[in-house]
Design a binder for these strands. Sequence first.
DNA 1: TGTACGTTTGAGAGCGCTCTCAGCATTCTG
DNA 2: CAGAATGCTGAGAGCGCTCTCAAACGTACA
Lengths: 335, 335
Amino acid sequence: MARTLDDLAELSGVSRATVSRVINGGPVSEETRRRVLEVIEGTNYRPNLAARSLASGRTGVVGVVMHVEPPVLFEDSYFVALLHGVSDVLADRASGMMLWLGNRSKEETLDRILGTGLMDGVIVTADNLDDPLVDGLLASDLPTVLIGHRRSDLTASYVDIDNIGAADTVTTHLIDIGRTRIGHITGRLGSVAGEDRLVGYRRAMKRAGLDADRFVIEGDFTRPSAIEVAAKLLELDVDAIFCANDATASGALETIKAAGLDVPKDVALAGFDDLPVASELHPPLTTIRQGVHAQGIESASALLSLLENPEGGPRRVLLPTELVIRQSTVGGLSG
Amino acid sequence: MARTLDDLAELSGVSRATVSRVINGGPVSEETRRRVLEVIEGTNYRPNLAARSLASGRTGVVGVVMHVEPPVLFEDSYFVALLHGVSDVLADRASGMMLWLGNRSKEETLDRILGTGLMDGVIVTADNLDDPLVDGLLASDLPTVLIGHRRSDLTASYVDIDNIGAADTVTTHLIDIGRTRIGHITGRLGSVAGEDRLVGYRRAMKRAGLDADRFVIEGDFTRPSAIEVAAKLLELDVDAIFCANDATASGALETIKAAGLDVPKDVALAGFDDLPVASELHPPLTTIRQGVHAQGIESASALLSLLENPEGGPRRVLLPTELVIRQSTVGGLSG
DNA sequence: TGTACGTTTGAGAGCGCTCTCAGCATTCTG
DNA sequence: CAGAATGCTGAGAGCGCTCTCAAACGTACA
């Protein structure tokens, strides 16, 4: 069984270099190529990635960094959806995907990632305004694509959505259906999405001449925290709540129901993400569809494109969002 | 900046071999070790993993294979929990984790995994009775630990639970509270867990002298399918349903409520897994706690132990399960 | 026929590390 | 005190691949 290029070379009567050319698509005469391919066909030869990497500096392996706390990973299928999109693209075009989760501190994780030196590039979720892991990756010479981005990531490649605009849109929808005492359970403050969605909420409220501060309460993107803080919002007698994501909305709904109130009659409810949970709630949730799977796909494509053509400058993709209106805000709808 | 072992060797006035010994814990005099470590401290030297791998055949990278369809990955936090447990252990003791999902066929995935040749070993979920991916990994020379196992995996290392016993236990619980027309929505048939839980259900029913076939209906571990098939079970006028997992129970609950029936008064309901969703349902779900996170931890530990000491024979771990009784079967309970 | 050029191929020098082997110094044993 | 055992170190041979360089062989043109 042929194990190395030299074995193949001997079997097909050419040099190692020529076999390498056949495998990697270098210039080889048709006849030689055919002969070598025939030999390869007959063996189960697999190139040794370590050797290739050592010689060429490339591995075909891409890193995916999602430095999130376990509870968030569980609670919110956002990351799973993202991962799925990324892996769809990588499975086709890269030879492997290394996953880095939030098991260790960001500093340690950064150190490991750079220390491995086995990846051609990384995709990293940039949730936080202040994030040494993202900073470190951008500062390194490892090609990096961000999912989400901070205003400071001027020269980075990223895939993102317009959080401010989308939050404005959904808040405006609540205003349009006649609500005036509209609460907002924020995402984790300090996170890009959390802060930006708050900005969008404020913008819409102010434009409508409504109080933009009184009904804001801090959440952290998780359902349990929403269950807790939603009660405080109800004490303020709100007639609508815009939640920073669907998991938060699911928690708020729980609290609203427990208080004996009706959605949407007493309190209209809206989320953000449009993950499967949104359509499974009772009533189904009005939310912002942000195409998480698409974000995964786009970020992986951007990274691969960056690797193929490093000279092409940073890749920047801003994906569209869509307001999905369901019965949690407009009760009469079917579906 | 020191980039290679030779750089370090020159800087500290010893040979490359000695520096390598310091880094890898070989026999070196205290003084030399101290001097070399001092030099290393001053640089940000990182060993080149590709070179190390090429020379030693080891990489410190471990593969995790979860060949599941995307909907399942979303629906069921089982896999996320598993991944979390695995990564907790690997983050400490291995240098990286490659993830392989179900983006391609099992044959192709197998080919890629073996082709990469970059992993010291793999952990693979062995869901299916018939699984070419698992067969291929076991037949290869890549050290492999299964999560779940088939009866045919006689010589393999695995981490598993007693599905039959646990299903018997939960079914017996339904019998104990006085139910006689107990339905079962199976997991995906063809899967080890699905089949074994059915066996456990049958065993308990037969022992109690109840009809073990009439109320069995096929599901596939997903919530949507459960919503659909639960209706058929209700037509048979069941007074309890044992669902093959929590996601299935969540779907069944939806259907039972939609039919205007009360849980547990009219229909008692039980699941399997004890994922977060179980305690979030209304009423909270009686289920089998199987410690998914622990399974992840155990499987990773088993693999690392296998890598450290290949002579030690296969590692086999059978984890305990626990019946968790909540209001979906015993209405009067608090909590 | 001679020169120039393009195409195809092979030789060989690494890539950065591990690991064996041998050499030397030192200590222990009888 | 000879000889054996032990501890530490350096030299050097790979691991399997890529990639540059130059050779060899046409072919085209003057």
